[in-house]
Amino acid sequence: MEKVIIALYLGLMALAANASPLIFYTHVNPPYVIQEQQQLSGLNIDIFQLLKQKSGLDLQLRVLSPKRAYKLTLYSPNSCVFTIERTESRESLFTWISPLFANRFALYQRHKNAKNLRSLADFNGIKIGSYLGSSVSEYLSSFNLKLDLTTTNLNSAEKLHRERIDAWASDTLLTAYILDNNNLDINPQGFEFYSSLEAIACNKQSNPAILQRLQEHLNQLQRSGEINKLIQHYQRLYGINTDL
């Protein structure tokens, strides 16, 4: 009889976990989220589909600006930002489903007049492009380096191409995508100096059973190597050497 009661309880818990949809707010950011004719694709979309399929949860995806996605998630239960950099300043604001993957960042220069730079100290006195709200810009600021912040990574890349800045700080996969899709005089070999953790940030009042189940299935996908295979697929697609 006790086993029957436990089974019924677990069944009710599963139903409760699926009672309300979990809304994932994301933003267009190729090659992580690509939007073409109302169709979404990219690395993050592939990860989302895996999580939805494996967990059996009612996960819904909505595209918003990064700022609006962040604010809505702060105040709306059963909602998450997908994905976002997990930083110390944000840690206490959300319940985290993590880790998804690590982003590697490098400093890039033009082919013309490129300097042989081996450490961040070598970048003192030169103007570095980055984008507002990124953890890499906060990291570079801590070294008192000269920053030029724009609204998007592509804006910074174009500034480097036009020689309005001296270097560009960007994650390696996004850089590979931008250089593959734009005719820019930028050396694809950058100086790697930083990494950040991408994660899912959920409202703290969200259904804990849903979040726990989501975390468990993310853990399974990490152990099986399925997420790593997706990452390697996109790295190869845009010419990043996965053997390093």
Rank of each mutant, 00 (worst) to 15 (best):
V81T: 12
V81W: 11
F82R: 05
F82M: 05
F82C: 11
T83G: 03
I84P: 01
E85D: 02
R86Q: 13
T87A: 12
T87W: 04
E88D: 13
R90W: 08
R90L: 12
E91C: 00
S92Q: 11
L93C: 01
L93I: 05
F94E: 10
F94R: 09
T95I: 09
T95E: 11
W96N: 12
I97F: 00
I97G: 02
S98L: 10
S98R: 15
S98V: 15
P99T: 04
F101N: 03
F101H: 07
F101C: 00
F101V: 05
F101D: 02
N103P: 07
N103Q: 12
N103R: 08
N103T: 12
R104Q: 13
F105V: 09
F105T: 08
F105G: 02
A106E: 03
A106I: 06
L107K: 06
Q109H: 14
R110M: 07
R110H: 11
K112S: 15
K115D: 03
K115I: 14
N116P: 05
N116S: 15
R118G: 00
R118T: 14
D122P: 07
D122L: 10
N124I: 02
I126D: 01
I126W: 04
K127A: 07
K127D: 10
I128P: 03
S130W: 01
S130E: 09
Y131D: 01
Y131V: 07
L132I: 14
G133P: 03
S135N: 08
S135E: 14
S135D: 14
S135P: 09
S137Y: 03
S137A: 15
S142N: 14
S142H: 13
F143R: 15
N144C: 06
N144H: 09
N144A: 04
K146Y: 05
K146F: 01
D148M: 07
L149M: 14
L149T: 14
